[in-house]
Amino acid sequence: EDYYQILGVPRNASQKEIKKAYYQLAKKYHPDTNKDDPKAKEKFSQLAEAYEVLSDEVKRKQYDA
């Protein structure tokens, strides 16, 4: 799945936009606030993985290549 789609940001998003999108979605899908939703944990880990790659310039360049 596309990391940009997961975070809901365009491919040319700035680091600030990526961070903002991640924090909004992380708050929304955090397992502690969605105890009754088994998919929230999965969504949250996808968000974390996408953010880890896109927030790191080197990893992001490799991902975009």
Results as ranks from 00 to 15, higher is better:
Glu1Ser: 14
Glu1Pro: 14
Glu1Arg: 13
Glu1Gly: 13
Glu1His: 15
Asp2Thr: 09
Asp2His: 05
Asp2Leu: 05
Asp2Ile: 03
Asp2Gln: 04
Asp2Asn: 13
Asp2Tyr: 05
Tyr3Leu: 10
Tyr3Cys: 03
Tyr3Gly: 01
Tyr3Pro: 03
Tyr3Ala: 03
Tyr3Ser: 01
Tyr3Thr: 01
Tyr4Val: 00
Tyr4Asn: 00
Tyr4Arg: 01
Tyr4Met: 00
Tyr4Lys: 00
Tyr4Leu: 01
Tyr4Ala: 01
Tyr4Asp: 00
Gln5Arg: 08
Gln5Ile: 09
Ile6Gly: 01
Ile6Met: 10
Ile6Pro: 00
Ile6Cys: 06
Leu7Phe: 03
Leu7Lys: 00
Leu7Tyr: 00
Leu7Gln: 00
Leu7Asp: 00
Gly8Arg: 10
Gly8Ile: 03
Gly8Leu: 04
Gly8Trp: 04
Gly8Met: 06
Val9Cys: 05
Val9Thr: 03
Val9Leu: 08
Val9Arg: 01
Val9Ser: 01
Pro10Arg: 11
Pro10Ser: 11
Arg11Ile: 05
Asn12Lys: 08
Asn12Pro: 02
Asn12Ile: 06
Asn12Ala: 08
Asn12Arg: 08
Ala13Met: 02
Ala13His: 01
Ala13Thr: 04
Ala13Cys: 07
Ser14Gly: 06
Ser14Asp: 09
Ser14Val: 05
Gln15Phe: 15
Gln15Trp: 07
Gln15Ile: 13
Gln15Lys: 11
Gln15Cys: 07
Gln15Ser: 11
Lys16Glu: 15
Lys16Leu: 15
Lys16Cys: 12
Lys16Thr: 15
Lys16Ser: 15
Lys16Trp: 12
Glu17His: 09
Glu17Lys: 08
Glu17Pro: 01
Glu17Ile: 08
Ile18Arg: 00
Ile18Met: 04
Ile18Ser: 00
Ile18Asn: 00
Lys19Glu: 15
Lys19Ile: 14
Lys19Arg: 15
Lys19His: 15
Lys19Phe: 15
Lys20Pro: 01
Lys20Glu: 15
Lys20Gly: 08
Ala21Thr: 04
Ala21Lys: 07
Tyr22Asn: 01
Tyr22Cys: 02
Tyr23Gly: 08
Tyr23Leu: 14
Tyr23Ser: 11
Tyr23Phe: 11
Tyr23Asp: 11
Tyr23Asn: 11
Tyr23Thr: 13
Tyr23Lys: 13
Gln24Asp: 12
Gln24Arg: 15
Gln24Met: 15
Leu25Gly: 05
Leu25Cys: 05
Leu25Lys: 06
Leu25Asn: 05
Ala26Trp: 15
Ala26Phe: 15
Ala26Arg: 15
Ala26Met: 13
Lys27Tyr: 10
Lys27Gln: 13
Lys27Asp: 11
Lys27Trp: 07
Lys27Arg: 11
Lys28Leu: 14
Lys28Met: 12
Tyr29His: 07
Tyr29Cys: 06
Tyr29Val: 06
Tyr29Phe: 12
Tyr29Glu: 04
Tyr29Arg: 05
Tyr29Leu: 12
His30Tyr: 08
His30Arg: 07
His30Lys: 07
His30Met: 08
His30Trp: 10
Pro31Leu: 06
Pro31Thr: 09
Pro31Met: 09
Pro31Gly: 08
Asp32Arg: 08
Asp32Gly: 11
Asp32Leu: 08
Asp32Asn: 10
Asp32His: 09
Asp32Glu: 12
Thr33Ser: 12
Thr33Tyr: 14
Thr33Val: 14
Thr33Ala: 13
Asn34Asp: 07
Asn34Pro: 06
Asn34Met: 11
Asn34Ala: 10
Lys35Glu: 08
Lys35Ser: 11
Lys35Thr: 11
Lys35Phe: 11
Lys35Leu: 12
Lys35Trp: 09
Asp36Pro: 05
Asp36Gln: 08
Asp36His: 12
Asp36Met: 09
Asp37Pro: 04
Asp37Val: 05
Asp37Glu: 05
Asp37Asn: 10
Asp37Gly: 04
Pro38Tyr: 07
Pro38Leu: 09
Pro38Gly: 06
Lys39Glu: 12
Lys39Trp: 14
Lys39Asn: 13
Lys39Ser: 12
Lys39Thr: 13
Lys39Phe: 13
Lys39Tyr: 13
Lys39His: 14
Ala40Gly: 06
Ala40Phe: 08
Ala40Pro: 04
Ala40Ile: 14
Ala40Ser: 09
Ala40His: 07
Ala40Gln: 07
Lys41Asn: 09
Lys41Thr: 09
Lys41Ile: 13
Lys41Met: 15
Glu42Phe: 15
Glu42Arg: 11
Glu42Tyr: 13
Lys43Asp: 04
Lys43Pro: 03
Lys43Thr: 08
Lys43His: 09
Lys43Trp: 13
Lys43Asn: 05
Phe44Ala: 07
Phe44Arg: 07
Phe44Gln: 05
Phe44Met: 10
Phe44Thr: 04
Phe44Cys: 05
Phe44His: 05
Ser45Phe: 13
Ser45Thr: 09
Ser45Glu: 09
Gln46Ala: 13
Gln46Lys: 13
Gln46Asp: 05
Leu47Pro: 00
Leu47His: 02
Leu47Asp: 00
Leu47Asn: 01
Leu47Lys: 02
Leu47Thr: 04
Leu47Met: 07
Ala48Phe: 14
Ala48Lys: 14
Ala48Tyr: 13
Ala48Leu: 13
Glu49Gln: 12
Glu49Gly: 07
Glu49Asn: 08
Glu49Met: 14
Glu49Pro: 04
Ala50Ser: 03
Ala50Ile: 11
Ala50Pro: 01
Ala50Thr: 02
Ala50His: 00
Tyr51Gly: 02
Tyr51Lys: 02
Tyr51Val: 03
Tyr51Cys: 03
Tyr51Phe: 12
Tyr51Ile: 04
Tyr51Ser: 01
Tyr51Met: 05
Glu52Cys: 10
Glu52Pro: 02
Glu52Arg: 09
Glu52Trp: 08
Glu52Ile: 10
Glu52Ala: 15
Glu52Thr: 11
Val53Ser: 03
Val53Asn: 03
Val53Cys: 07
Val53Gly: 02
Leu54Thr: 01
Leu54Gln: 00
Leu54Val: 03
Leu54Ile: 04
Leu54Lys: 00
Leu54Asp: 00
Leu54Gly: 00
Leu54Met: 03
Ser55Tyr: 06
Ser55Ala: 07
Ser55Pro: 00
Ser55Val: 06
Ser55Met: 06
Ser55Ile: 06
Asp56Trp: 02
Asp56Asn: 06
Glu57Asp: 09
Glu57Trp: 14
Glu57His: 07
Glu57Ser: 08
Glu57Met: 08
Glu57Arg: 06
Glu57Asn: 06
Glu57Val: 12
Val58Trp: 11
Val58Ala: 15
Val58Met: 11
Lys59Asp: 02
Lys59His: 04
Lys59Ile: 03
Lys59Ser: 06
Arg60Asn: 02
Arg60Gln: 01
Arg60Ser: 01
Lys61Leu: 07
Lys61Asn: 07
Lys61Cys: 09
Lys61Thr: 06
Gln62Leu: 11
Gln62Thr: 06
Gln62Arg: 08
Gln62Ile: 13
Tyr63Val: 03
Tyr63Trp: 03
Tyr63His: 03
Tyr63Ile: 03
Tyr63Thr: 02
Asp64Trp: 02
Asp64Phe: 02
Asp64Thr: 02
Asp64Gln: 02
Asp64Val: 02
Ala65Ser: 10
Ala65Lys: 12
Ala65Thr: 08
Ala65Val: 09
Ala65Phe: 05
Ala65Leu: 12
